[in-house]
Amino acid sequence: MEANHTAAVPKRAPGSLRRRRRMLAWVFMLPLLVVNVLVILGPSVATIYYSFTDWSGLGPAEFVGLENYREILSDGDFYLAMWHNILWTLIFLTVPISMGLLGAFLLSQINRFQIFFRIVYFIPYVVASVVNAALWQNILDPDRGIGSTLASIGIPFLDGVSFFGSERLALPAVAFVNNWAWWGFVVLLFLTALQSVDAQLYDAAKVDGAGRWQQFINVTIPGIRPTLVFVVLLTIINSLLVFDYVYIITRGGPAGASEVVGTLMYKEAFERFEAGYAAAMGLGLSFVSGLIVLVFIFLRRRGWEI
């Protein structure tokens, strides 16, 4: 039966099947492709065009060539905002990643209540940023927040501190709030990666006399390197595009002390009605993000294990 059946199928059948399967795959992908073209490619092309125009967001746009880009290069507010993005990136490359590694490592050591802690750590990540922000605005309120509560029990060092009203503290305070929502997600990513590291490697390291720290450096880190690189890349791109927490909590203030390119771009587009200039700014930011991704791809092709 089987032989007869095989004989009955034309020789070209496997190739045809493959083609049909490929076609089917494209058919399934087509809706997504169409959506992407509509909501990403279309606006992206329009953004590129508008970045060369003086457009208020209303009426016709006047072509101004590279004027917007020239203006960006001499815009002190843009440099300050970009500097804040860099500081933000440095904060997020260190604090949540360190906390995430530590949290994941500690969680990997326990079996009981691990799920409970995973959920607890993850909850802030799924809570809307506006809710998280409101929560911390209340907690850090100089008169009604944690500072005055601590002061009432004899610990006055935070009493009256206006975290979001101080030029010095505003940016780190907003980063702290965002980190609170973000780090639990990093823990879960690292925990999943840790669980895929071969336990025998730890045993071998122990036999070789490696301590906890040496195991972490020589077994854990290499074992989770792809996840670590992914988190680093995600962190850099997210930090360049940061907008929501800054906009909700300080709107870039006081006096630009927490301004990032995302909030500056928003203000240019929707408050100053310099939509063309904002488009150029957005494109500049996308260019930097793209450059970072390209560096990663380049290094990977050069044989770096990232």
């Binding site: 279309g42 329009a46 953004t47 065009y49 771009m265 587009a269």
Partner: peptide, 24 residues
């Protein structure tokens, strides 16, 4: 500085008003 003008039909209707970038 040029003075080329574009129309709503050429750019805005097709691409939606999301002309300031995918992030918005």
């Amino acid at each position: 500085m040029g003075n080329r003008r574009i129309t709503r039909r050429q750019f805005i209707q097709r691409s939606g008003a999301a002309a300031l970038g995918a992030s918005f």
